[in-house]
Deep mutational scan, measured.
Amino acid sequence: RQGFVPAAYVKKLDSGTGKELVLALYDYQEKSPREVTMKKGDILTLLNSTNKDWWKVEVN
């Protein structure tokens, strides 16, 4: 499932696989259909980080 999360809630990881991955630093509950819920410690695939406030991710 793809959607947006606050950029301040995730940290980029060095995956070494060519995929950009991020680590969820905090729990986040989606507040609109365009967002996704994540739990602290989740590893997500980063799809787009051009917006400084909201990053598009895919929940694996």
Rank of each mutant, 00 (worst) to 15 (best):
N60H: 13
K11W: 09
V36C: 08
T37E: 04
A8T: 12
G3D: 01
T45K: 12
L44D: 00
Q2Y: 08
G41W: 05
T17Y: 14
T45N: 09
A8L: 11
E30A: 15
D53R: 15
E58M: 10
P6F: 04
V59W: 09
I43P: 01
L44R: 00
Q2C: 10
S15P: 09
S49E: 14
A8Q: 13
K52Q: 11
E35L: 05
S32F: 06
G3A: 04
T50K: 12
L47W: 03
L44F: 11
D14Q: 11
R34V: 12
G18H: 12
T17C: 13
P6N: 03
D14S: 15
F4Y: 15
N51F: 08
T50F: 09
V10S: 01
G3T: 02
W54A: 02
V10M: 06
V22E: 00
N51G: 10
A24D: 01
N51L: 09
K11D: 05
L23D: 01
Y28M: 01
S32W: 06
L21D: 03
Y26R: 15
G16F: 11
Q2A: 11
R34P: 05
G18Y: 10
Q2M: 08
A7P: 04
T50E: 14
D42N: 06
V22H: 04
D27Q: 03
Q2T: 11
D42E: 11
V59N: 08
Y26K: 15
V5Q: 01
L13Q: 05
N60T: 12
G16L: 14
P33M: 08
Y28L: 01
Q29M: 13
G41A: 03
Q2W: 09
S49N: 08
G16Q: 13
T17N: 15
L46N: 00
S15R: 12
T17R: 07
Q29H: 14
N60I: 14
L25Y: 03
Q2D: 05
T50I: 08
G41F: 05
K52M: 11
L13R: 03
F4N: 04
K39D: 04
L47T: 04
K19V: 13
W55T: 04
M38T: 04
K31M: 11
E35A: 06
Q2I: 13
D14L: 11
K31I: 06
S15Y: 14
Y26A: 13
T45C: 09
D27L: 02
E30V: 07
K52D: 10
K12G: 04
L21A: 06
V36P: 02
W55Y: 07
K39C: 10
E35D: 05
V22R: 01
V5A: 03
W55V: 06
S49M: 10
P6C: 04
G18D: 12
P33Q: 08
A8S: 14
Q29R: 11
K56W: 15
N51T: 06
N51Y: 08
K39V: 08
V36G: 02
Q29N: 14
N48H: 07
M38C: 06
G16A: 15
K56N: 06
P33F: 09
K12M: 10
D27T: 05
K56H: 11
D53C: 13
K56C: 12
L25V: 07
D27N: 08
A24T: 04
E58I: 08
E35H: 07
L44V: 05
T37F: 04
L44N: 02
V36F: 13
K52T: 12
K31P: 04
M38R: 00
V22K: 00
K12F: 07
E30I: 07
N60R: 13
A24Y: 01
Y26S: 08
L21N: 05
G3R: 02
A24N: 01
T45D: 05
L23P: 00
L21V: 08
D53E: 12
R1D: 05
S49Q: 10
W54P: 00
V10G: 01
K56D: 04
K40P: 03
N51A: 07
P33Y: 09
Y28N: 01
D42T: 06
K39Q: 10
V10D: 01
Y26L: 12
F4V: 06
L46M: 03
K40N: 04
L23Y: 09
V59G: 07
K11E: 10
E20S: 14
E35P: 04
E30S: 15
F4T: 03
K11A: 11
L13G: 03
W55L: 04
N60F: 13
G18Q: 10
L13E: 04
K52P: 15
K19W: 09
N48M: 07
V5S: 01
K12E: 05
K12I: 10
A24C: 10
G41E: 02
N48E: 15
R34C: 14
W55K: 01
T45E: 09
G41V: 02
Q2S: 11
A7M: 04
K11G: 06
V5T: 01
W54N: 02
P33T: 09
R1M: 08
F4E: 03
N51V: 05
L23C: 10
A8M: 12
D14C: 14
K12Y: 08
S49D: 14
K52E: 09
E20R: 14
R1K: 13
F4W: 15
K19L: 12
S32I: 04
L46A: 02
S32K: 07
